[in-house]
Amino acid sequence: MFEVTETLQLEGVGYRWPGRASFELRVPNLTLARSETVLLLGESGSGKSTLLSLICGTIIAGSGRVCVAGTDIAALSAGQRDRFRAEQIGLIFQQFNLLPFASVQDNILLPLRFAPERRNRLDDPKQETARLCHDLGLPVGVMSAKAGALSVGQQQRVAAARALIGMPPLIIADEPTSSLDAATQATFLKLLFAQSRAHGTTLLMVSHDARLSSQFDRVIHMTDIAQTTRGTA
C-alpha cells in the first residue's frame, strides 16, 4: 500500500441528480487525514446520502475530483470502482446492515469475497472474525448464529466488524447509532473508536445528533462544506 496523508479528498465536486426533481450538490473542499475521526453533522435532505454515494463511487461527480486513498475514483471503470470500494471502504448503515438469513461469520467475511487485497492482509480470516467479535463484545458462539436472530445492538456490532475486517483505510458510518438506545449507543461508539484507532483507520460518521461531537477529532457541518440548490426543472 502506498502512503498518502489524505485518506479522503474532495475538490470542487459538483453533482446534479438526473431526473425531474432538480437537486444539485456542491462540495468545494473536504479533506480527511489518515486515522482521523470525523463527525459530519447535517439535517435530513442536506445532501449527506449523495455525498456518501459520491465517496463510495456508486455515483460519479459531474465536476471536480473525489480521491479515496490517493485514487481519483472517476478514473476507474464501473467494475473497478466496485472492487475499489470493497478494498478501501468499510460501510456501516443506519440499520438492516446484515443479510438476515446468513450466519454472522458469513456476513463479516462478505466484503473479503470482493476484496482480495483486504483478504490477503489476513492470515486467517475466520480467526480475525472471531477476534473482532470478541473485541466488539459479542457473545461467544455468535459467529454461527443467523444474523437475523441477533438484537439490533448486536447487529450493529457485527456490521462494525464487517467494516473493520481486513483494515480498509476508510470507514463510513451512516447514522449507525440512530436505531440504538443511549446506553447501547455509547458502548457501540466506544468499541468502534477503539477498533478504528487500533487499525489506524479513518472514520467518517454521518449523524444529525450533535451530542456525539465530543468523542470525535473533528466535527464538520454539512452546511459548512457543501451548498445544495433545489429548483424546478
Partner: peptide, 16 residues
C-alpha cells in the same frame, strides 16, 4: 432490495 444493496455496498458488481 436491501439484500441487493448490501451486496453492492460490500463491493459486489451488478453482475453478481
Amino acid at each position: 432490495r436491501r439484500e441487493m444493496a448490501i451486496f453492492r455496498a460490500m463491493g459486489a458488481r451488478p453482475r453478481v
